[in-house]
């Protein structure tokens, strides 16, 4: 028959017990060998990776917590620093105000003192000048009087007389 050659097992007549044994032995040996040389190591690696991933996730979680904690700390520190800076600035401002007031008042006092001393000096200079003028007037007067009288009166008497006169004149003035 033409189609006979396509019937793959047409030649087999008896039950092939040997094939059963061969199939079982080959399959089971293959399974054992694969378990030992391929699936076992592969499963080991996959398990290892699973563990690695789990531990990495744990580590990442820990790192995240740590970072959050540090961030909180940093924030608190920053806040503290800011308030501290503010107080420093404020106290410096206060200090500056106080210093300014002090400097102004000191300058004012100094100015007053200078003015007063100047006034005092002027006063003394004026007195001195007046005194000098008075002396001059006395001596001029004596000179004039002696010239007018043409005679000498005792210098002492004269001087006393003139001083008296001038004092009277000063009072009258």
């Amino acid at each position: 028959m033409f189609l006979d050659k396509f019937v793959l097992n047409a030649g087999a007549e008896a039950f092939n017990g040997g094939d059963v044994v061969a199939t079982l032995v080959i399959f089971l040996v293959l399974m054992f060998l694969l378990k030992k040389f391929a699936w076992g190591p592969l499963m080991g690696v996959m398990k290892q990776r699973e563990e690695l991933v789990a531990s990495e996730i744990d580590a990442a979680e820990n790192a995240r917590k740590e970072a959050a904690k540090t961030l909180e700390e940093q924030k608190a520190l920053l806040k503290e620093a800011r308030t501290e800076a503010q107080t420093i600035v404020e106290s410096a401002k206060k200090q500056g105000d106080i210093q300014r007031d002090e400097i102004i008042s000191a300058a004012r006092a100094e100015a007053n003192r200078l003015k007063e001393s100047a006034v005092r000096e002027i006063e003394t200079e004026k007195e001195k000048a007046i005194l000098a003028v008075r002396e001059e007037v006395v001596s001029l007067s004596v000179l004039a009087a002696s010239k007018v009288l043409g005679k000498e009166i005792s210098e002492e008497d004269n001087s006393a007389l003139i001083k008296e006169t001038i004092a009277k004149a000063g009072e009258a003035k």
Partner: peptide
């Protein structure tokens, strides 16, 4: 036991 050598061969090749 009767062995079909072709089957055994192909099983071995597959394995």
């Amino acid at each position: 036991l009767t062995f079909n050598l072709s089957t055994v061969l192909m099983l071995l090749i597959t394995a």
